[in-house]
Write a protein that binds this DNA or RNA. Structure first.
Lengths: 229, 229
DNA sequence: AATAGGTGTTAAATACTGTTAAACAAAAAA
DNA sequence: TTTTTTGTTTAACAGTATTTAACACCTATT
């Protein structure tokens, strides 16, 4: 359920460029390809990108120059350089203009991905997390506080009750698949965990009885649906 | 006015180790040197570090194994691997255990510095550097002074209390895995140490009672979560 | 209707956690 | 050294969470 990473790839070799671009898209990202630093910079300014991959040696405007310009207007967007040479001075200059990593051709595309995610892990470490509160009819459910509230009534939830109710909420009025829920909450969808889950469904039903407009209904052979009128 | 970067260097070759260590100190950092993963991990748990440099091949406990353990209790501290081989599988494994960068021996010390600052720039972009102090609701917790402060109230902490509270802080509003914590603080996750830890959780709960917005909640079968509203 | 597998519910059994106090160990003071 | 203090572990018991067992009931299929 992760958002696609929007990558701007600037590489003058059309073969390598399209190859890389296709690979990145195949791996679930969006990728825009440009063939020189000038166009690359213009494209960056007009759009919004999460990651830049820049070839160093390019016609018209090289990767370092482009990176310097980028840093002038965006100090944070991650930049990874590609280069044919592995000269030390180049490596150093790459970092000096604000690059985050550096790869020497030829490189493995797998390693490129892996380095990208290492960098992105840092960058977007503090992604927005779902606020963790849900309205269920007359109830208010706070996942973080593990609390189910209805007026004066407050029910503290156990770990499993809490996790299961959250899954139901994420699928309100839709079917929560049995095996999916089991794997998510119990880590394994074997028979006994299934029975355990049924016990928890019974518990949740008791809690939710206070509001007649709320109901957990079974979808035979499929799973459960949290139904709210 | 940058504070010194506190580096933990784990390298079994004493020549390279001391050389590197001295160089890093000369460049204005603090550096602690250990010669195997076991000692390295213990040192990490006891102290506060901003950066780890780990040799991959070491006796007793290798760098990858150590990194995996570290990630169990600290998902953020930057890790850079050193290795003699430049095998692709190794590189990938390095990133897979949560490493941030990878350098093949022999390398230039200048490039090491430059890669370090590239990583640190990313790291400290969002979060402040780890000075060993944490805010927990109305409390201020100073790991180095072993002190938990809330207005006039001051609670001196014992070694174990201190270590455990730090781990909880590093995972605020996230789950601190029971076994990870036990291995980190007690060195062994056997039953009795587990009971001992529960006793310490009770103690910490007493201290933290002063602020109703702070709570240590149990996640059944998994561990504990320091929850701050 | 007969069958087989899925579900609802309650209660018992098991596993895990909370807390206090006593026992033990280690360090500091006398 | 012996005593005192402090920190940690173990023991004991209470309480909670989760799983398993048991049995009644439902649903789809034949």
């Amino acid at each position: 359920m992760n958002k696609k990473t929007k990558i701007l790839l600037v590489e003058d070799d059309p073969n390598l460029g399209t190859l890389l671009s296709e690979y990145l898209v195949a791996k679930g990202n969006e990728c825009t390809l440009r063939t020189n630093g000038q166009e690359g910079f213009e494209t960056f300014v007009k759009g919004t990108f999460d990651f830049l991959i820049l070839d160093v040696m390019m016609p018209i405007k090289d990767g370092f120059t482009m990176a310097k310009e980028i840093r002038g207007i965006d100090k944070d967007v991650p930049i990874l350089f590609l280069t044919a040479k592995s000269l030390k001075e180049d490596t150093l200059q790459g970092f000096n203009v604000g690059g985050d990593d550096y790869m020497t051709k030829p490189f493995s595309m797998e390693e490129l991905l892996v380095r990208m995610s290492a960098i992105l892990r840092r960058t977007q470490g503090s992604e927005e997390q779902d606020q963790g509160t849900y309205n269920i009819g007359a109830f208010q459910f706070d996942f973080n506080q593990r609390l189910l509230i209805n007026g004066g009534y407050e029910q503290k939830l156990t770990t499993k009750e809490n996790a299961l109710l959250k899954l139901l909420c994420k699928n309100v009025n839709g079917v929560l698949d049995r095996n999916h829920a089991l794997n998510a909450v119990w880590g394994d969808d074997n028979y006994f965990n299934g029975r355990s889950m049924d016990v928890y469904i019974a518990k949740l039903r008791k809690y939710l009885k206070l509001d007649n407009n709320v109901e957990i209904v079974n979808v035979h052979g499929k799973g459960f649906k949290l139904f709210v009128k």
